[in-house]
Simulated scan of single mutants.
Amino acid sequence: MYLQDTSKSDNCTAMSDVLNRIGDKWSVMVVGMLGRNGTLRFNELKRLINGVSQRMLTLTLRNLERDGLVTRTIYPEVPPRVEYGLTELGKTLQGPISELWNWSAENHAAIIDARAIYDARENAIAQAEPRKIAYIGS
């Protein structure tokens, strides 16, 4: 099933619900790393994902598990070993996320250039416009 008509409330709700989970950068990074590396332990994931805090990774993994995208396996050892992997549903995201990563890598320089051009143009406009002062008449 595809969401053909985004003007329908149910379709927008479904899209928003899914994008709220898989659209944040940490979820994309977790699914991407698990897709590329297979089953990983928490600290392995933390090392692979630059800049993620322990708390944010914990919350992200918990939410991905809740949505059925990630499995959490606890091994009865001392100390306990916990591993994370993609579910079958999570594996279906590997293709789109891999494409997004590739697109990002291929187009990052062009995006940086476009931002610089935009910022320079906006700064030039801001400096060229005289300041407007509002007066309240009596």
Rank of each mutant, 00 (worst) to 15 (best):
L45Q: 06
E77P: 01
F42E: 09
G68A: 05
T71L: 09
G32M: 08
A14Q: 11
R81F: 07
N63I: 10
L57C: 09
Y84G: 04
T13A: 13
N63P: 05
R21H: 10
N37H: 14
S53C: 03
V70S: 03
M56R: 10
G38K: 01
V31P: 01
R72P: 04
G32A: 14
M33Q: 15
N63L: 12
E65W: 04
K46A: 12
A14L: 15
M15K: 11
L19A: 11
G23H: 06
E83I: 08
V30T: 07
G51V: 01
V78R: 08
L59P: 05
T73N: 15
P79D: 09
G35C: 04
R66Y: 11
S16M: 15
A14D: 08
R36F: 08
V28A: 13
W26G: 01
E83S: 13
I49P: 02
M56W: 07
E65F: 07
L64K: 02
G38V: 08
P79R: 05
N50Y: 05
R41Y: 03
L34I: 04
V18E: 13
N50D: 12
T39H: 08
L57Q: 05
L34G: 02
M15R: 11
G23M: 07
V18C: 13
L61D: 02
I49C: 01
R66N: 10
I22A: 11
D17C: 11
E44K: 04
M33F: 09
G35F: 00
R66I: 14
A14P: 05
Q54P: 01
L57Y: 10
P79K: 01
L64W: 01
N43E: 12
T39N: 11
Y75I: 14
D67F: 12
G23K: 06
L59A: 09
T71C: 09
R47Q: 15
G32W: 07
E83P: 05
R21P: 00
N20Y: 10
E77K: 04
I74F: 10
V28T: 13
V30N: 02
L61A: 06
K46F: 08
V52Q: 03
S53M: 11
I22P: 07
Y84R: 06
M29Q: 15
T13N: 05
L61S: 06
N50Q: 09
D17N: 09
L61G: 04
K25W: 11
G35S: 10
L59W: 12
S27V: 00
L59R: 13
F42N: 10
D24G: 03
R55K: 12
V70E: 00
T58F: 12
L57W: 04
V30I: 10
P80Q: 08
G68P: 01
N20A: 08
E65S: 12
V18N: 03
V70L: 01
L61E: 02
S27Q: 01
L64S: 09
S16N: 13
V30S: 01
L69Y: 14
M15H: 04
L69T: 07
L64G: 00
T39S: 15
T60Q: 01
L69R: 02
D24W: 00
S27H: 02
L48N: 05
P80C: 00
W26L: 14
R66S: 13
R41N: 07
R41Q: 15
E65C: 11
I74Q: 06
L19S: 13
T71M: 03
Q54V: 10
E83R: 12
T60L: 02
G35T: 08
G35H: 03
